[in-house]
């Protein structure tokens, strides 16, 4: 059963901010199906009475005190930046911004 269509792959790729070539969309639509089908099997045991587990170990209340640690040097912060100006990261124009 095919569950993920080409359009769905394209929609999800946009949501994931990944530009895909048409041939990649085609291939992913085919491959993702296989995985989704394989996954359908788990629904038989994932019944409402079973609680979900998000963490392998049940820890709670892990905090740090509100005490400063040294910040990164600004030069280190910007060292990996594809583009920077005046101590800040330069990024292409953001649509929908003033």
């Amino acid at each position: 059963m095919s569950t993920i269509s080409r359009d769905e792959v394209a929609r999800v790729a946009a949501l994931a901010r990944i530009e895909l070539r048409p041939d990649e969309v085609d291939r992913l639509a085919g491959e993702l199906d296989v995985i989704v089908d394989a996954i359908a099997q788990i629904s038989s045991v994932a019944t409402p009475d079973v609680p979900a587990t998000s963490h392998p170990l049940p820890l709670t209340n892990v905090y740090r005190e509100d005490v400063p640690v040294p910040a990164l040097a600004v030069a280190d912060v910007l060292a990996g930046a594809p583009d920077a100006q005046d101590g800040r990261f330069a990024v292409p124009q953001i649509l929908g911004e003033e």
Partner: peptide, 10 residues
């Protein structure tokens, strides 16, 4: 203009 960009301070 395509020359527009933003500067980000975190």
């Amino acid at each position: 203009s395509g020359a527009e960009y933003s500067l980000v301070d975190y």
